[in-house]
């Protein structure tokens, strides 16, 4: 659009047959819509994104039929200011500390200062969550979470699951504050 005048003058010199005109218009519109890709990437990286949930780690909250069908939940991930104001019970997405190219969904169990009674794979019985870190766990049993890799830095958090979109019966806002807090967490203030 901004380059329309340049594009038009550059393309006007070429053939004017039906075919060439069609391809000229086609390439014009392709380039014109390609200019919307950077704003789209920015929006998806910093404001909101719609994503499918893979795997059973948040069973039964997300993907409750993971072993019965191939259906996956579609969720809205809100990414604006996602690292601020984290609370216990929130469902967050973060970059996996074992593999930076993977994004993982878990529920926040402990905040900085909490003493968490850990689950089996963790080498110690209790863990203190350090400053700037959070303790995340999946709702289900098959979950690789902080009991494997320890407390994670809050800087890894990329977004919050705010809405479930796809299975129509469960669609709606994620009421994380109604989820019962996990037992065995000695909570510091906040």
């Amino acid at each position: 659009m901004a380059a329309r005048w340049a594009w038009g003058s550059a393309a006007a010199g070429r053939g004017t047959g039906l075919r060439s005109r069609f391809f000229r218009h086609l390439s014009h519109y392709l380039i014109r819509y390609a200019t919307w890709i950077p704003p789209l990437i920015w929006f998806n990286a910093y404001v909101a994104e719609v994503t499918f949930i893979r795997g059973p780690s948040m069973y039964p909250f997300l993907n409750p039929h993971y072993n019965e069908s191939l259906r996956k939940d579609l969720c809205l991930v809100w990414k604006l200011y996602s690292q601020e104001g984290l609370r216990r019970g929130m469902v967050v997405t973060f970059r996996n500390p074992y593999d930076p190219n993977r994004t993982t969904v878990k529920r926040i169990v402990g905040l900085p200062g909490d003493v968490v009674k850990t689950k089996p794979p963790y080498p110690y019985e209790y863990a203190v969550v350090p400053e700037g870190h959070i303790w995340v766990e999946g709702d289900g049993d098959k979950s690789q979470d902080s009991n494997h890799y320890g407390p994670i830095s809050a800087r890894l958090v990329t977004g919050r699951i705010t809405h479930i979109l796809s299975p129509w019966d469960r669609a709606g806002r994620v009421r994380w504050w109604e989820h019962p807090l996990r037992a065995g967490v000695h909570r510091s203030a906040v």
């Binding site: 659009m1 901004a2 200019t35 950077p38 920015w42």
Partner: peptide
């Protein structure tokens, strides 16, 4: 060739997004 003022704003937005990328 400046076009509609709305289009100028959109073009600026797209340029900023591209630079940010």
């Amino acid at each position: 060739w400046l076009g509609h003022p709305f289009r100028v704003i959109l073009a600026t937005l797209k340029f900023v997004a591209f630079t940010h990328l």
